[in-house]
Design a protein around this nucleic acid. Structure first.
Lengths: 334, 334
DNA sequence: CTGAAAGCGCTTACAG
DNA sequence: CTGAAAGCGCTTACAG
């Protein structure tokens, strides 16, 4: 018998029992005598029978697929994050015999997501990258498709899994202050992004909590072009800042290039820390002190939550993930 | 009528025609009067009917899914390649209303692939990373599942899409020689890997073709630990090599670090080129001369070929992809 | 050009 | 504990 074509009906016929019983013996739902169960089990093993996921899907009106959305053509930044995240998602999904379907889309263009949903190919989705006023989220909400976002969303109806950037930044800043640095400077992009606003607050509150002052001239947010960034770095150095804290790894990378150009040595002449880790900084010399967020965990948690949500269970709308402060060469006080 | 629950039967009833006709009007297969077709079309549009991909799958015994395999937990190297490749694959797949299912696996552990195939969740697979004596390939061959590999495979039965590394390396080497470099050195890993053997041959044949000599002392393959690599670099410098050619970007990265440590300036004191491009080198200062391979194209071609193969069409067992020689600062002859 | 009917391979109330 | 039968929502020979 060709193993790839065995059906539940074949088993029933061979074993002289009904399809119903076979189905029950396999799924474990409903009572089946242990003797019958064993006969089915051994037949299946012998003939390498594998149930058709498609038929099961149709019968149960479930696809056993979830989608994972991520940037496609552009935004090749921080790809390791997505890979690790996917790994976490896959592991959890497969435990429930679910598979993950790729959905690549750019900001604004959610056509691939629409196709997936309209074709009823998935039971739920994990949004790997959120945007402000996210079209994908609005669409999924309207279509009543369960989803969870990795990263914060402004949408109060979205179920979110995120790192506690505020706490993490506050802690890293405190550690730097404890190490004796006195003139921390901060540089980063737009604080209209929630995550950046949180980072700024963490930075400031750490100072407050420890009874330290920060110099307003040393805080430079809303930086969005290289020239501006270079000017800021020059100013920090001129004002005698002893450590530059970067709001993200992208900014950090640029700061490093600028300091290199200026021939300023790290950590001898100035120290550097980043509020975000990434592959970009991983191989840097000196190694960069940064906050470590675990992308695999983000994947795991978001998938677990989505699974529960798809099961109709209540889930909390916001899940905080852990973080680590990783001290490296770039902030060593010689 | 709840749009998410409309079936072909509802349409048939509302329009007073048979399910058969509705199905034909939608699929375009079989003759349907243009009037009927139009009635169906407008009804569908009005009520936002979307056929169930699952039901279609079961009826046609096709899943409309393909799998893309890539490394999971380990091997976080060169992730942008996979992302670009996936983007290419997705675009082509979606043209035929196919979706791509993620299959993350480590060398040797093909359990996730097995699950996918046994559950009949895909019609074909694209192997994103090939290994020697690839377990995944052997499995798919045995299961008679159509697949294509991105990158070369030693398996003669595998349908492969690959870059012509030999030609590419030969060309880059020739260009370097034409620029006047006289003592090219070559460094890389094991030549048991087909791709490395090809690279070595390209390097040597370029010399031969141009009537130049290469010094055996300047060719160092089978390098597999950092100490060995550092020693080799020191030797190259001591022997007066004017350009180090690296077999891949990983080796190149290490060579750069070593030269940096040695305070040897690029390209002033020595030049550098890589036989492979990657994000790791993209942001380097100085920018690195390297061979450019288009990962999006690799995805596109492999998916096109897989689609044709799944259609039962004959496809050539080996497809060569293009490449570009990208000259950058690291080989400028001042 | 159109339909009735069987089929894809499972699941699941319902009845026993 | 077990079965007959209907159902999941499409497709497709076959017949007209």
């Amino acid at each position: 018998m060709d193993s790839s074509k065995i059906t539940i009906e074949d088993i029933a016929r061979e074993l002289n029992i009904s399809k119903t019983t076979v189905s029950r013996a396999i799924s474990g739902k409903g009572r089946v005598s242990s003797e019958t169960r064993e006969r089915v089990r051994s037949f299946i093993e012998l003939h390498h029978y594998r149930p058709s996921a498609i038929a099961k899907s149709l019968a149960q009106s479930k696809t056993f697929n979830i989608a994972f959305t991520m940037p496609g053509k552009y935004g090749f930044i921080d790809m390791p994050f997505f890979q690790k995240c996917m790994w976490g998602i896959s592991s959890i999904a497969s435990e429930s015999d679910y598979d993950v379907l790729l959905c690549m889309m750019e900001e604004g263009d959610i056509s691939s997501l629409k196709r997936l949903i309209h074709n009823h190919k998935v039971d739920g989705v994990i949004i790997g990258r959120t945007y402000e006023n996210d079209a994908a989220e609005r669409f999924l909400l309207a279509e009543k498709v369960p989803f969870v976002t990795v990263g914060s969303s402004a949408n109060p109806d979205a179920i979110q899994v995120d790192n506690d950037h505020y706490q993490a930044c506050k802690e890293l800043t405190s550690v730097l202050l404890l190490k004796g640095m006195k003139q921390l400077s901060l540089i980063g992009g737009s604080t209209k992004y929630i995550v950046n606003a949180n980072r700024l607050n963490g930075f400031m509150d750490a100072h407050r909590t420890m009874g330290k002052q920060y110099l307003p001239e040393l805080i430079k947010t809303e930086v969005d072009d290289p020239a501006e960034l270079e000017a800021a770095v020059e100013q920090f150095v001129a004002l005698g800042s002893d450590c530059i804290v970067c709001m993200d790894d992208f900014v950090c990378n640029q700061v490093l290039l600028k300091l290199n150009k200026m021939q300023v040595q790290i950590p001898k002449q100035i120290r550097i820390a980043s509020f975000y880790n990434s592959a970009m900084l991983e191989n840097n010399r000196p190694s960069i002190t940064s906050l470590q967020f675990d992308a695999v965990e983000a994947g795991i948690r978001s998938c677990e939550i989505l699974m529960r949500r798809m099961d109709g269970k209540k889930v909390s709308s916001k899940t905080w993930l852990g973080y680590n402060v990783k001290l490296n060469e770039s902030t060593s006080v010689v």
